[in-house]
């Protein structure tokens, strides 16, 4: 299992691995927001938590089509299914690798981009904590979407259509926690809900992902 994690991380960091693409996308989306809504500092600071959450969610989504599609094309998935490693574990590991290469950098970059959006000072902690808690759920749910569309040619757009509705609860609780925190309120309740979703999906989604992947490969 460690071998799979190391392999996925190594591939992500090598040329063509796509590491940093999600981060760059996050940066660009955040920079584009003031261009579209105007430079007023108070407006930006009130939408900053939501923009950061939405940007992070889209950056996660965009990197999902690499998660399984590349392994499908070169036959690795067929071989992984026949390997002694349980497919559920393999997909959990792949989701973890996706989070480490996409979600975690977003969490770290969020405060920097928060400065660009006039995020209120007491919001930084909330944004970082809510993203750190919520992005693993995005990776795990995304793995399900990737597994669902693995055999479909040009499945990327379809995958977005399937995954985005599944992201709704995570987004609502995550952004709500960040928003309340930034407004100087207590965001503990949505944060706990978010944690519940994250741990629930980590525990259960790999089974659904493995089931649909087996169906899709036959």
């Amino acid at each position: 299992m460690i071998a799979l994690l190391i392999r996925d991380l190594r591939l992500a960091f090598r040329a063509g691995g796509g590491f940093g693409l999600g981060l760059a996308f996050f940066l660009i989306v955040t920079v584009l927001v003031p261009f579209s809504v105007g430079p007023q500092a108070d407006l930006l600071s009130s939408i900053a938590p939501g923009v950061l959450w939405l940007g992070a969610l889209l950056a996660c989504l965009l990197s999902l089509d690499r998660l399984l599609a590349l392994d499908y094309e070169d036959g690795t998935l067929d071989l992984l299914v026949t390997a002694p490693l349980p497919l559920e574990a393999a997909l959990s590991i792949k989701a973890l690798a996706h989070w480490l290469t996409t979600g975690l950098p977003l969490v770290i970059a969020a405060p920097v981009l928060g400065v660009l959006l006039n995020l209120p000072a007491n919001g930084f902690g909330w944004v970082v904590v809510s993203l750190a808690l919520g992005t693993p759920a995005l990776s795990v749910i995304g793995t399900f979407g990737a597994a669902l569309t693995v055999g479909i040619k040009r499945g990327g757009l379809l995958m977005s259509l399937l995954v985005l509705p599944l992201y709704v609860p995570t987004l609502i609780f995550g952004a709500e926690a960040a928003r309340r925190g930034a407004a100087g309120l207590d965001g503990t309740t949505p944060l706990l809900m978010l944690a519940g979703i994250t741990f629930g999906t980590i525990a259960l989604m790999p089974f659904a992902s493995a089931a649909v992947l087996r169906m899709g490969l036959r």
Binding site: P165, L166, V168, I172, M193
Partner: peptide, 12 residues
């Protein structure tokens, strides 16, 4: 997830 969304939206 639809049920989760329902409660999330009510909360929101």
């Amino acid at each position: 997830f639809a049920i989760l969304s329902r409660y999330a939206v009510q909360f929101w």
